[in-house]
């Protein structure tokens, strides 16, 4: 464990908690893409199956359980409890265009052709593009609530910190995982446009609105 991976995990946890609290306290999921949240639940489910087979540390196990629990709770709040506030008309990204290619690629490019490894690879590739429905929805509505931009900021920051973690581990431990690194770079690049808007607008107290 290094400081970059730890702050990355805490940033990820912060994003997940911010979103869950935003929906729970405002009793509304307006502006939130339910499709992205379903994809994140798929990412955690396919990646953390090793909860059943391997014990790495209390930290590792507890964080995985928290991530899975919060992501399913968020999906439940969006599609069940606060379904009336779900903005389905703007959450129209065709997720099959993400899941099918990602599924195919995880069979073609992986470290080991075993079920657990292919599912892990699928989750890595899927996480790289899982935010697209949310970014697409914001481009359609033309704006995002400030709390949603903070959620996106911490979510994007977490994988950017992981990139630094991988540089650190390569240098100090000789460890690297090309699949995770390439997917992580793609994932972080997808946030660049948002990061620019977040820094130039939201951090200056303005609302995040796109066409302007």
């Amino acid at each position: 464990m290094n400081i970059f991976r730890l702050t990355g995990d805490l940033s990820h946890l912060a994003a997940i908690i911010i979103l869950l609290l935003k929906i729970w306290k405002s009793r509304s999921c307006a502006g939130i893409s339910g499709k992205s949240q379903i994809l994140f639940a798929m990412v955690f489910t396919t990646r953390y199956l090793d909860l059943l087979t391997a014990y790495i540390s209390l930290y590792n196990t507890s964080m995985k359980i928290i991530y899975i629990g919060c992501s399913y709770a968020t999906v439940y709040l969006i599609y069940a409890k606060f379904k009336a506030t779900y903005d389905g008309n703007h959450d129209t990204f065709r997720v099959e265009f993400l899941v099918v290619p990602v599924g195919g690629l995880s069979f073609l490019v992986n470290h080991d052709f075993s079920p657990l490894e292919i599912l892990w690879t699928f989750s890595i590739y899927l996480e790289a593009v899982a935010i697209l429905p949310q970014l697409f929805m914001i481009s359609k509505t033309g704006e995002a609530e400030t709390i949603t931009t903070h959620y996106l900021f911490f979510l994007g920051l977490y994988r950017a910190l992981y990139l630094i973690n991988w540089v650190w581990r390569f240098y100090f431990e000789g460890f690297f995982d090309m699949i995770a690194i390439v997917a992580g770079v793609v994932q972080t690049i997808l946030y660049c446009d948002f990061f620019y808007l977040y820094v130039t607008k939201v951090l200056k107290g303005k609302k995040l609105s796109l066409p302007a």
Binding site: I56, D112, Y162, G174, F176
Partner: peptide, 10 residues
């Protein structure tokens, strides 16, 4: 460098 396969990252 060796590519350790133990998945210890989240």
């Amino acid at each position: 460098p060796v590519k350790k396969k133990r998945k210890d990252e989240l």
